[in-house]
Simulated assay, not measured.
Amino acid sequence: MNNKIKLVECPRDAMQGIHQFIDTKTKAAYLNLLLQTGFDTLDFGSFVSERAIPQLRDTREVLEQLDLSTRTKLLAIVANLRGVEEAIVHQAITYLGFPFSISETFQQRNTNSGIEQSLHTIDQLLEHCDRSGKTAVVYLSMGFGNPYGDEWNIEIVEQRAEQLITRGVKILSIADTTGISTPQKIKEILPGLISRFPATEIGVHLHSSPSTRLEKIAAAYESGCRRFDSALKGYGGCPMASDDLTGNLATEDLIGYLEEKGIDLHLNKEKWQEAILFSDSVFF
Rank of each mutant, 00 (worst) to 15 (best):
I93T: 02
K271Q: 09
Q124K: 12
M15G: 02
G17I: 12
E155H: 13
R227L: 15
A76P: 08
T177W: 07
H266T: 02
N80I: 05
G234A: 00
N112H: 12
Q117V: 05
E259R: 10
Q117G: 02
S173E: 12
H19Y: 09
Y235P: 04
T178H: 07
E188P: 04
I5E: 09
L172G: 05
F106A: 06
L68R: 06
G114S: 05
L56S: 08
I202E: 06
C129F: 07
P147N: 06
E151S: 08
V169H: 08
L34A: 06
S49A: 07
H205Q: 13
I156H: 14
M1A: 12
V204W: 10
A161T: 00
V282I: 15
R60T: 11
S281W: 12
G203P: 02
F228I: 04
E86Q: 14
F283S: 11
I102L: 15
I88C: 07
H207K: 00
A175Q: 02
R12Q: 10
K27F: 03
P239S: 00
L68S: 03
G237C: 10
I156N: 12
F21N: 12
I88D: 05
V157Q: 14
S173P: 00
I171T: 15
S132I: 02
D229S: 08
Y235E: 11
S101G: 05
H90R: 05
L7I: 13
G143P: 10
E61P: 03
Q36K: 15
A220V: 11
F47T: 06
P11R: 14
L206V: 09
T70E: 02
A52V: 09
T70I: 00
V8W: 11
R226Q: 01
I276C: 09
T105L: 05
R196N: 12
A175D: 04
L35A: 02
K261Q: 15
L81I: 12
V157L: 14
T37P: 01
Q16H: 13
S242I: 03
E104L: 01
A52E: 13
T72W: 03
I171V: 08
L258V: 00
K27L: 10
V8F: 11
